[in-house]
């Protein structure tokens, strides 16, 4: 579903970036991408989503090269950034219709999906309000609904659980599982290692722009250990420290 091969990206005037990142996210995978702040998670996600260009490497989404055919790739995924900065001057429903227009979702489909997801996240009543009046959590929920409106095959999320209430977190996890059961995939960055360990079948750990470990969760987290132990070990810190 998503193949990142030898991705290298460096920012001008900064030593930050990512080096030779290679990750393969297959159909049915829920893939966690973990690392401390500034490790290169968001840079990788921004390259994958076409927000940033990259220096070297290749990104394939559903077999299509992001560099050669970015629009076709973007039709197949949805991205939710870590901070849901949406158009404040629109109402929730206007925003969802705007996104549905971009993805050319038919009137009936969009109505059904908006009703379903807005109902699940309990913001149906607030869709007529201006986004500027929404709390962080409500904006996050609206961003998630907008991401699901065209039924993407690949869901890419940057810190998706920040700001979500426990109920919404459970619903989002359920949605992630459903996408994977339907043959899609989910790729997300997180600092919540417990959730990653329980929810994901694959994981990658990144430090200073380099992937230190990646693969099946079961292979990386051996019996008697937790993802937290592995993460601390990988980044060279002793838990006791």
């Amino acid at each position: 579903m998503l193949k990142i091969n030898n991705l290298t990206k460096h920012y001008k005037g900064s030593d930050k970036g990512v080096n030779n990142v290679t990750l393969h996210i297959g159909k049915g995978d829920i893939y966690a991408f973990i690392g401390h702040n500034g490790a290169g998670k968001t840079t990788t996600l921004k390259c994958v989503t076409g927000i940033h260009d990259f220096d070297e490497g290749e990104i394939l989404i559903d077999g299509i090269s992001l560099r050669d055919n970015p629009l076709e790739c973007k039709r197949r995924f949805a991205y939710i950034p870590d901070n849901p900065d949406l158009y404040k001057y629109l109402t929730g429903i206007q925003y969802l219709n705007f996104i549905a227009d971009i993805f050319q979702v038919g009137a009936n489909d969009r109505e059904d999906r908006i009703k379903k997801y807005a109902g699940d996240f309990e913001i149906l009543e607030s869709l007529g309000d201006l986004i500027s009046t929404y709390s962080h959590g409500m904006k996050q929920k609206l961003a998630i609904i907008s991401a699901l409106i065209h039924q993407p095959k690949l869901l890419i999320l940057d810190e998706p659980f920040v700001g979500l209430d426990p109920q919404a977190t459970v619903i989002l996890k359920g949605i992630m599982k459903k996408i994977c059961e339907a043959g899609g995939a989910v790729f997300f960055s997180t600092h919540v290692l417990d959730v990653a360990e329980r929810l994901c079948n694959k994981v990658a750990i990144i430090k200073a722009g380099n992937v230190l470990a990646s693969g099946n969760m079961a292979d990386i987290v051996r019996e008697g250990q937790s993802l937290e132990d592995i993460f601390m070990e990988a980044i060279g810190k002793n838990v006791a420290d």
Binding site: I51, A78, P81, I102, F103
Partner: peptide, 14 residues
Amino acid sequence: KDRTAEFLLSHPVS
């Protein structure tokens, strides 16, 4: 500035 570009450019619009 409003950080909405991130959202917009991840959608299928060139």
